[in-house]
Design a protein around this nucleic acid. Sequence first.
DNA 1: TGTGATCTAGGACCTTTGTCCTACATGTTG
DNA 2: CAACATGTAGGACAAAGGTCCTAGATCACA
Lengths: 228, 228
Amino acid sequence: MRKLRPQKRDNAASARGQEAVAAILTGARDVLVEEGYPRLTMRNVADRAGITVGNLSYYYANKEDLLHDLLEAVIQGYVEDFDRIATNFERSPEGRLEDMIRFVVGDLSTKETTGFFPALWALAIHDDFAASEMSHVYDIERDAFARVIAEMRPDLSKRDRDILALFISATIEGHTMFIGYGREKASAAEAIGNVAAYSLLSLVRNVDAATIRGLKLAAKVGGKRAAS
Amino acid sequence: MRKLRPQKRDNAASARGQEAVAAILTGARDVLVEEGYPRLTMRNVADRAGITVGNLSYYYANKEDLLHDLLEAVIQGYVEDFDRIATNFERSPEGRLEDMIRFVVGDLSTKETTGFFPALWALAIHDDFAASEMSHVYDIERDAFARVIAEMRPDLSKRDRDILALFISATIEGHTMFIGYGREKASAAEAIGNVAAYSLLSLVRNVDAATIRGLKLAAKVGGKRAAS
DNA sequence: TGTGATCTAGGACCTTTGTCCTACATGTTG
DNA sequence: CAACATGTAGGACAAAGGTCCTAGATCACA
């Protein structure tokens, strides 16, 4: 499970206070992941953190502040993890792209990711702060994909590379509800990882600008079985 | 916007009662879509339906019953729509697959779908009934994809065809949070539709069983630019 | 027409939840 | 040690929300 690095809070002046904030954020994340957003109440968070509501309100005067810090802290963990993977320059662009795809697909199966992201997506539709945090993490992810794509396909325009990066990111995320932790198709996770790696790598290698712009009908384009 | 066909309720004995139930479900859907699940309260639903809480409780004695009927009714609309598209036998399998892909991608941009499905996904993680309704609609969708895939690729095993159907469905759904109604990348919806059609059709045409089972490394597989 | 079935409004109720306050405990620093 | 900053517990409070009850309106039909 990722570490949560709390931002410095006004009311957490001592080391003890910092620990309390960390316990609060960890508790809040656990409630969100394990029980869902509707159960993310000040009292549930306080219980998980092993403190009282009164004490919780010393650190977080209102729920909105708590939610903001929680989203920031959790998102930050994902950003750091992904940055690390994306900057492994030992492999070829193709190899790195495959690593990234398999890393994200693998991550979907964790309890934290399966529990956190669908909640974030739902939240982001009606909450601007959640939407901006969501943008943050996916901007990072797409940037990383776009950089690898640029190496593989310098002939494509930046716009087209960005479309491909968006497609790859969205494609992978979409599997969360199906192959995520405890989900119905969790047993298909490995096969899905293989298909995703194959399909998305093939896409980046083979797509051309005219296709992205809709100048070719997909059903008309001839296909050959991939060379073995 | 899809019509909501309420199941017959015990307390809706007359035509007037049926209309009231329809108004309630429509109101409930609108609240869920426009304000999100946390605001789906009995009072908000009653207001949208133009009735009082007291009257609402005549039809739905508790919130759980209301939520169940709501999910069933909304899901049923999607099932019917999708069934209609999937059984258009005028076109070739490839053409039908492309139609289905473009239909689902296009549907993501509607306010209802963008608002409803992320809420459903989040709900399904902690609510068994929501999970079973979610299974229902996606089972139908995957079955339809799997049938077309079977026509295109009779050489693949049922398991492999099911994996491809799952991959296609999940891939498309994953774009909801990005290119959905009012979302940040909504302007990329058309290009994404093109890429999805191209990428997923190519996948079904070209993938082989060994790739799905992970016996080939994606980054090692050679690729050629698609024939124009 | 009137009588029972159906529907509706309004409000009461109890619980949950966010927020706030105060007194007390713990720690830190001169 | 004294004084002050920091942290903690417990409970009070109002608002919101789910549920329930009752009296009255509307409707269908004998």
